[in-house]
Amino acid sequence: MSSSVRRSLAPLAAAAAICATGTAAASEDIPDKYPESPLYDKPVQVTDRVWSAIGATAPPTYENQGHNNNLSFIVTDEGVVVINGGASTVLAQALHDEIKAVTDQPVRLVINENGQGHSMLGNGYWREQGVRIVAHEDAAAEFADSAPQALESLKGYAREGAEGTSIVAPDETFTDRYDASMGGVTIEVLYLGPAHSPGDTQVWLPDDRTLIAGDIAFHERMLPLFNDTCTSCWIETWDNALVPLGAEVVIPGHGHPTDMATVQLYTRDYLLDLREKIGAHIEEGGDLAGAYYVDQSRWQDLDTFDELATKNAGLVFAEMEFE
């Protein structure tokens, strides 16, 4: 392990000691950790350059204001790169306030890690600050289709926390990779292949072996599947493109910073296990109704298990039935 990475792990170890990995039963009642801010939790320093405000491992609620994903930022000598616009203008401004408490450097770039509301609905705030916003072309297309519904959902759960939020598309899109390097820090914005949702984006700092993984990687909560999620593609992208990066520090899309072995357990290994169970169910002549009851007890301590386990099983059945 390089000395720079070894130094970078000290803040990560401190953060892990504060928030380490005990899992609670999935619940919308997980308490807010930072009541004086719209953010669910105060940003923690993960490495020398990288900070992250870790979101709730729960569905979006009034209490967490939709901060149930990780909002990260990279501090360089020439500016700050923010990963995720946030779920609202209120959350974006709250994150910006925290950045200003860490550094005098201006925010110069926002990267939307996917096309979901909690990644892009805060874009309007950053546009007002004159910050350039970048996303993968598929994520931008998904946001264009889903943004009105996402905004209505935000208004429903966040109430006054949705005030000032509008639909603002990224300024720029990319296909395979985008060079966000600045201030002598190499910052690679990557699309490694199909995974959780269209245009899933990873931010890679090769000199620090640090990966801001986005929703290709989950920790501490059960991952959700969508109608257009290809689980076999996700596993292939993981094995053939994500693992070869050789990341030593991983900030997942959801859950605390950790390492590759941990996110592999709660992401790839979960997908493999569920596909194995559904595959056996299909081989035995099982139908969709029975698929909901395949044994997922191995994962029952993950947050959002109650909300997502049976739904995930049904979606994997639909995917595998005619493979």
Score class of each variant (00 low, 15 high):
Val189Asp: 04
Ala20Phe: 10
Leu109Met: 03
Arg209Asp: 07
Ala162Met: 01
His256Ala: 09
Met260Cys: 04
Pro59Arg: 12
Ile54Tyr: 06
Met120Thr: 05
Asp97Lys: 13
Leu154Cys: 03
Leu302Asn: 03
Asp138Cys: 06
Tyr178Asn: 05
Glu163Lys: 07
Asp171Phe: 02
Ala241Ile: 00
Ile282Ala: 03
Asn68Cys: 15
Ala20Thr: 07
Ala13His: 12
Arg268Met: 02
Asp303Lys: 13
Ile74Asp: 00
Glu248Trp: 04
Ala169His: 13
Ala101Lys: 08
Trp234Phe: 14
Gln264Arg: 14
Pro257His: 06
Asp41Ser: 13
Thr175Ile: 12
Thr258Tyr: 10
Pro170Ile: 07
Phe218Asp: 00
Glu319Phe: 14
Ala289Cys: 05
Arg6Met: 11
Leu245Lys: 09
Val107Cys: 09
Asn64Tyr: 02
Ala26Ile: 11
Gly115Glu: 01
Ala289Val: 10
Glu142Trp: 13
Pro244Val: 12
Leu265Cys: 10
Ala213Trp: 06
Ile212Arg: 04
Arg132Ser: 04
Pro60Gln: 04
Ser232Gly: 12
Pro59Ala: 15
Pro198Asn: 09
Val107Ile: 03
Thr57Arg: 11
Ala150Gly: 05
Leu223Tyr: 04
Val5Leu: 15
Ile83Glu: 03
Ile187Ser: 07
Ala101Tyr: 05
His136Thr: 08
Val75His: 02
Thr229Glu: 08
Phe226Cys: 06
Ser166Asp: 10
Asp179Trp: 09
Gly253Ser: 03
Glu142Gly: 01
Ala150Arg: 10
Ala87Phe: 08
Asp176Arg: 14
Ile111Phe: 10
Ser197His: 00
Gly279His: 05
Ser37His: 06
Ala15Val: 10
Lys33Trp: 08
Trp204Phe: 03
Tyr62Pro: 02
Cys230Ser: 15
Leu205Phe: 05
Gly314His: 05
Arg127Lys: 14
Asn68Val: 10
Leu272Pro: 01
Ala144Trp: 09
Ala213Met: 01
Gln300Cys: 11
Pro224Cys: 09
Gln129Phe: 04
Asn112Arg: 03
Ala94Pro: 08
Trp299Gln: 01
Asp138Tyr: 10
Ala16Gly: 03
Trp238Asp: 09
Val82Pro: 08
His254Gln: 15
Glu113Trp: 12
Glu172Met: 06
Gln105Tyr: 02
Thr231Cys: 11
Arg268Tyr: 01
Arg49Lys: 11
Arg298Ser: 12
Gln202Ile: 08
Val80Met: 00
Gly130Met: 00
Gln105Cys: 09
Ser8Gln: 11
Leu223Asp: 01
Ile278Met: 01
Leu95Arg: 02
Asp273Gly: 06
Trp234Val: 05
Ser166Pro: 00
Ser52Ile: 02
Asp303Gln: 15
Ala150Lys: 13
Ile111Val: 15
Leu190Ser: 05
Glu323Val: 15
Gln264Gly: 15
Lys42Cys: 00
Leu91Pro: 06
Trp204Ala: 07
Gln129Val: 02
Arg6Glu: 08
Tyr62Met: 05
Gln264Leu: 02
Tyr34Lys: 03
Gly22Trp: 12
